[in-house]
Amino acid sequence: MSHAPSEDSRANGQRPLREALKVVAVTLKQGEAPFALAGSYGLWARGGPEPEHDVDFMVAEEDAPRAKDLLAERDLRVVQPPEDWLFKVFIDDAMVDVIFRSGNEPILRSRFDDADHLEVESVKMPVLSATVLMTDKLSAMEEHSCNFSAALPVARAVREQVDWAVVDEQTKDNPFAQSFLHLLRALSIVTDHPR
C-alpha cells in the first residue's frame, strides 16, 4: 500500500525545517542556554498540523546574546532583522526565529517553567505548554493576521491539552481571539463556558 503523494511531498518539503529545528535545539542544549520550542512547530510537536514557513524558539532576553553567539559559533548564519524582539538563523533555505521579547515584554526564564520535555524528531527538548502556545497564537490575531481556517485544525488537534479558561482570560481584550473562541464553542471543539 502506497502513501498518498501529497503526504510524501509535504513531508519531504518540511525536511529542511525539521533539520533546522534539530540543529538549533541541539546547539542550545549543548550550550546549556535555556530555551523552548514555540509557535506552530511547538503545536506540531503536540499533535497539531505541520507548519510550512519557519520554526520558532523562545529564549529569555537575558540569554539572547549568548544564544546568538552559540549558534554563530556553530557556523550558522545568524541575522538581526529590523525587528528588535528576535533574531533569525538560516540553515540553507530553512529559517528559524529565536524570539526573546513577546508583546513588547522581555521573555523571562520563568516562561519555560511549565514546558514539557518532549522528543521532537528524535531530540528531547523543552516545548511550551499547549495552553501557552494557543494563548500566543490567539493573542497574535489582529486585523491583518486573522486566519481562522488555519487556526481551526490546530485547536482541534490540541484541544484536550489546553486549559481554555486560561486562554480565554489571557485573550479577553483581543476581539479576534474572543471571536475564535466563540467559534470553537459553537462547533463544540471547546466545551467550557466563557467567563
Rank of each mutant, 00 (worst) to 15 (best):
G47S: 04
Q30A: 06
R66E: 07
Y41P: 00
A25P: 04
G42E: 07
E61S: 09
A64M: 10
A11K: 12
V23C: 01
P51F: 10
R46N: 05
A67N: 05
A60V: 06
D63C: 08
R66L: 07
R18C: 06
P51M: 08
R15S: 12
A67D: 04
M58W: 07
L17N: 06
K29S: 13
D63K: 10
G39E: 04
S40E: 09
V23Y: 00
D8S: 13
A38Y: 13
V59A: 02
L37E: 02
T27K: 10
S9N: 12
H53D: 15
P65H: 09
L70D: 00
A25R: 06
E32A: 12
V24W: 00
V26W: 01
A38T: 04
K29E: 08
E62W: 02
G47W: 11
G13T: 02
F57N: 12
L70T: 03
S9Q: 13
G13P: 09
A33T: 15
V23I: 15
Q30D: 15
V55E: 09
D8C: 11
P51T: 12
M58R: 08
T27S: 15
F57R: 07
A33E: 12
Q14E: 13
V59G: 01
G39A: 04
E19R: 14
V59N: 01
T27C: 13
E73M: 12
G13F: 08
E62D: 13
V24G: 04
A25G: 09
L71R: 11
A64I: 08
T27H: 03
G31C: 04
L43Q: 07
A20K: 08
Q30M: 11
A60Q: 03
P16K: 12
L21S: 02
F35T: 14
H53M: 11
E32R: 14
E73H: 11
V55S: 05
E19W: 03
L37F: 05
G39W: 03
A36R: 03
A25M: 06
V55A: 09
D63Q: 11
E73Q: 14
P49F: 12
G42R: 10
